Amino acid sequence: MNYRHAFHAGNFADVLKHAGLLSALDRMGAKDKPLCVLDTHAGRGRYELDSAEAARSPEWKDGIARVMAAAREGADLPAAVRRLADAVAALNADGLTVYPGSPLLVADRLRPQDRAVFVERQEGEAAALSALMRGRRGVEVRAEDGWAALLSLVPPPERRGLVLIDPPFEDRREFQTLSRRLAQAVRRWPTGVFLVWYPVKDRDAARAFEAAAADAAQREIAIAELVRDTDPRAAGLASAALLAVNPPWGWAEETAAALAWLAAHLGAGAGGGWRFDHRREDGTWDTRATI
Rank of each mutant, 00 (worst) to 15 (best):
A212D: 15
A24G: 08
T230G: 15
A183M: 00
E48T: 02
V154Q: 08
P58G: 10
G45M: 00
R180N: 06
G283A: 10
K201V: 14
G74C: 14
K17S: 01
R115S: 13
E73T: 10
L25E: 08
F12W: 11
V186A: 04
E120P: 02
A127Q: 14
R111S: 08
A235R: 13
G272L: 10
V139Y: 04
D229Y: 11
A252W: 04
V81H: 11
M1Y: 10
D86Y: 04
P103F: 00
K61L: 14
G43T: 01
P199W: 04
V163C: 11
G20K: 05
G271Y: 01
R180Y: 09
E281A: 15
R72C: 13
A87V: 12
D171W: 09
V106E: 02
R142N: 03
R219Q: 14
D231K: 14
P247D: 02
E140D: 12
T191W: 15
A93I: 12
H41T: 03
E48R: 12
F12M: 08
K201G: 05
R27W: 02
L25F: 04
A257H: 07
R27T: 03
A268P: 09
A13K: 04
L16Q: 07
L150R: 13
E220Y: 10
L77N: 09
P155M: 07
G161R: 06
G124M: 01
M68P: 06
L77S: 02
A75L: 05
